[in-house]
């Protein structure tokens, strides 16, 4: 069960600078989308706008055809997960981190679910009891992914998930994202690494000076 995520004519202006200049994008259920572009082109801003973490100055974000402004922010963001470039780990163990999303809704994450989540992102079970803040960059990225998956989202938005990782770890994260796509999740990934964009499989976009175009 996945919904279409759409950005419609998004405009973001900050301190007099136009960062997004009327960007439209459609992400169908289960689709993979990679957005490339030079730094400062607006691609990260686009991901954050699609996650409703920043308010566009014009345009709209729609989920399943419904304007995001009509959906409660907490509900929208459990359905559309967003991962920052270097995801913040919360104080406590990995297990505690994974349970954060359900806990915010007054639910708890069972041990079996926790094991399944770490397995799904290619980590071993003992990591559950480690302090999240002591993890390496690659492990953090995976734990953040598992933490987002605990909310059972329909769409994953990732801002440069491989930028802070060594090439090996980066490729493993992309392979993981491809697997998740194969299981029906829509994946939108912002990246400046051409190989990673292509490895995700799906539509390639190019972001340049606040505008978006399909990349051939």
């Amino acid at each position: 069960m996945s919904s279409t995520l759409e950005g419609r004519e998004l405009v973001v202006v900050r301190e007099g600078r136009t960062i997004l200049d009327g960007v439209s994008i459609l992400v169908r259920p289960g689709e993979g989308v990679a957005i490339q572009g030079p730094s400062g082109s607006g691609k990260s801003t686009l991901a954050r706008a699609l996650a409703t973490l920043l308010a566009p100055d014009a345009g709209a974000v729609l989920l399943g055809g419904r304007d995001a402004r009509e959906i409660a922010p907490a509900q929208f963001r459990t359905r559309v997960a967003f991962l920052a470039q270097q995801p913040a780990m919360f104080e406590g163990t990995v297990l505690g981190n994974l349970g954060t999303g359900p806990q915010l809704r007054g639910e708890s994450l069972g041990p079996a679910q926790a094991r399944e989540l770490v397995g799904a992102v290619g980590l071993d079970e003992p990591i559950l009891l480690r302090e999240a803040r002591t993890l390496s960059g690659g492990e953090r990225q995976r734990v953040a992914l598992a933490r987002a998956l605990a909310n059972a989202p329909e769409v994953l938005l990732l801002d440069e998930p491989t930028a802070a990782l060594d090439p090996d770890a980066g490729e493993r994260v992309v392979a993981l994202l491809r697997d998740l796509r194969a299981r029906g999740l829509s994946v939108v990934m912002v990246t400046h690494v051409d190989a990673h964009a292509r490895a995700l499989g799906g539509t390639l976009y190019r972001c340049e000076r606040g505008r978006l175009a399909v990349d051939a």
Partner: peptide, 11 residues
């Protein structure tokens, strides 16, 4: 970054 990570999880 912590606060936004929580918001992104539906806080």
């Amino acid at each position: 970054d912590q606060i936004e990570a929580l918001l992104a999880l539906g806080a």
